[in-house]
Amino acid sequence: MEYVANKDIIAKRIARIFKTGDVVNLGIGLPTLVGNYVPEDVTLILQSENGMLGLGPAPMKGEENWDLTNAGSAPVTVRPGGCFFDSAMSFGIIRGGHVDYTVLGVLEVDQEGNLANYKIPGKMVPGMGGAMDLTAGSRVVIAATLHFEPSGASRLKRRCTLPLTAVREVNLVVTDLGLFEVMGDRFFLREYFEPYTPEWIKERTQAEIVIPNDCRPVSFEKVFPRTGE
C-alpha cells in the first residue's frame, strides 16, 4: 500500500467530532482547514485567541478589515452574536476551561499525551504563542497531524524528544491514517481510515498502539460523501 499524505482527511474527521454550541479554537495551519468541513447542521462558536468569539469565514476580496484578523493575522469576519475582547479576557476564556475543544498542529505527540510544537533547539524557535494556555485550559485537546514526517518517521512517539508544549494534556490524535485516543500511556486506535489497516498502521508507528476489538474502519468516500461539502 502506498502512503499519500492527506491533510483534508484529518480536517474532515475532526470536523465531525463537534456538536452545535461547542466552543472551539482552531490553530493556524492544518487545524484551520477543519472549519471548511463542519456539517451545515452544526453551529460552532469559534474562539480566536487574539480576542474574539464568533470567528467567521474570510471576507470577500476588497472587503478586508485589517482591524479584524485571526491569530495568524489573516483577515476574517465576525458572525452575528460574536464579540471582541482583550487578551486577558481571551486567555481567561481559554485557561478557565470555557473552551470545549482546541485543535492544534504538532511536531511530535507521544503516548503519554505530551505534545511538542514550539521549538526545535538550534534550528527553529517560533515560540509557543497561545498553545501552552490552550492545551492547559481546554476541555479536550485534539492534535491534528500528518502521521509521518517528511523523512518518513512517525510523529506519534513513545516519548517526545523536543521541548514540550503540553504535559499529559492531549486527548485525541487525528492523523491521515486514523483516530487515536490517549489512555493509560498508550494510543488506542479507535478508527482506521481505509485503505489503511490497523496492522499496517501499527507496524509503521513508533509509539505503542492498542487495537481494541471495537476499532472501526472509516471510509471517507462512504461516510463523508462529497456532496454538501
Binding site: E49, D86, S87, A88, S90, F91, I94, R95, M128, G129, G130, M132, D133, A136, G137, P163, L164, T165, A166, V167, R168
Partner: peptide
Amino acid sequence: QGTLAERVRAGGVGLGGILTPTGLGT
C-alpha cells in the same frame, strides 16, 4: 501568550504576580 497578558495586567493592577497552570512541566 496568556501568561504574558496576565503578567502585564498584574503589573498594571497592583498584583504581586499570578498563579497559572500554564507551562507546568515544560
